[in-house]
């Protein structure tokens, strides 16, 4: 399992880093094309927005795998024994419910419907279904991490919110 996890981590890391770099280039190009080349690009805006959805959703999955999403980690810390186990199972179950039902099941419905009706994006004429695939894909990754977290919980007692080393404090925008 750790081998697969490392593989999933690596793929996500690679995709996120490259997509983010392209994203920066995209917006910089938008400025350059307007001011330096005097012929503004008509597609960078949409390209950047769609790429961004992918970065955000895959980033969300990867970040979850790193146990870095913000949570109020009170109950899992003050409870002990079987109660603590139940709390942690409850947390994983709730996340799996969201990832499985909303992101994978609901997301696939959205993808298939937009592909079926052949809805395209305004500027790039890209099938919107391709943009939305990010949702079920991210959901699948989160489901997988839920599995590993569950295994971790029963094997080592480590809860899904417990990070390795010292946790970073605070919301990202604080």
């Amino acid at each position: 399992m750790t081998v697969i996890t490392r593989g999933v981590d690596m793929v996500l890391r690679l995709v996120i880093t490259i997509a983010f770099a392209v994203l920066v280039a995209c917006v910089v190009w938008q400025v350059v094309s307007r001011y330096v080349l005097q012929s503004p690009s008509t597609v960078t805006d949409e390209m950047a927005r769609f790429l961004f959805i992918w970065v955000a959703l895959l980033g969300g999955a990867y970040t979850f795998g790193q146990r870095r999403h913000l949570a109020i980690d009170l109950l899992p810390v003050i409870t002990t024994g079987i109660l603590r186990l139940l709390v942690n199972v409850g947390i994983i179950a709730a996340i799996a419910l969201f990832a499985g039902v909303v992101m994978v099941y609901g997301g696939l419905d959205l993808v298939s419907r937009t592909l079926e009706t052949q809805q395209v994006s305004p500027a790039l004429r890209l099938p919107m279904g391709l943009v939305y695939i990010a949702i079920p894909f991210s959901g699948l990754c989160i489901l997988y991490y839920c599995l590993t977290f569950l295994a971790d919980l029963f094997r080592t007692g480590r809860g899904p919110n417990e990070q390795e080393g010292t946790a970073s404090v605070g919301g990202p925008l604080d």
């Binding site: 955000a56 959703l57 969300g60 970040t63 870095r68 919301g171 990202p172």
Partner: peptide, 17 residues
């Protein structure tokens, strides 16, 4: 640095979505 920024960002972004 890019990856770290993406991670920090996606914490906010998933919350925003």
């Amino acid at each position: 640095i890019i990856l770290e920024s993406a991670v920090t960002t996606s914490i906010v972004l998933l919350m925003i979505g």
